[in-house]
Design a protein around this nucleic acid. Sequence first.
DNA 1: CGCTTGATGTCCT
DNA 2: GGACATCAAGCGA
Length: 209
Amino acid sequence: MASRLSREFYARDTHTVARELLGKHLVRCYAGTRLAGRITEVEAYIGEDDRASHASPGPTARNAPMYGLPGYTYVYLIYGVHHCLNIVTEREGFPAAILIRAIEPLEGLTIIEQQRGLQGPPTALTCGPGRVCQALDIDRTLNHCDLCAPDALLWIEDASPIPETQVARSPRIGVRGDPRAIEARWRYYLRDSAWLSASRSFNRRWATS
DNA sequence: CGCTTGATGTCCT
DNA sequence: GGACATCAAGCGA
């Protein structure tokens, strides 16, 4: 039986957690059945100094979960259309989170296809933060939920570790404005996975540098 | 209050 | 490569 990741797992340095989240299984309880996917791509957002982070203006009502306990969700609506799922990390009081950008479907493929309103080609199903949330029926009702709670409807399970040779880093996608935020290689992904949100050439370029 | 803008995805040409 | 959907945060008046 795969074990559910503990509070201690999330309560560490965000880069470490982001790196180790690769390969883990994101599980969603949907109408009593399991939807699950292997995490293939994440991004770190760390501290108020990170100009790309929602925490950069300081504490507000929206970003409150980022300042809360690790192991909680932070779900927000972007462009008025898409939801994005983040996992809060580090200690309470320090704003940091990891955006789940892509997964490889493992369980509940039929329901995932229904949620997305399409069948293969499979990479369009769950590659991209908005697609992940639509595929797993994640919206703001799942904001600020405890992934470690016994009755959670969303959690992450341990899986076999990913070797360092399979891990690549790149700048974060869609970040604009501050040059330092644009350049920081805080996106982590499985370099050979087909389940990634950026273009193949972009992923290859950063995987080999 | 009104105005601007986004950690995106889809459809179009 | 570009338009645009659609909404609430965040900010300035």
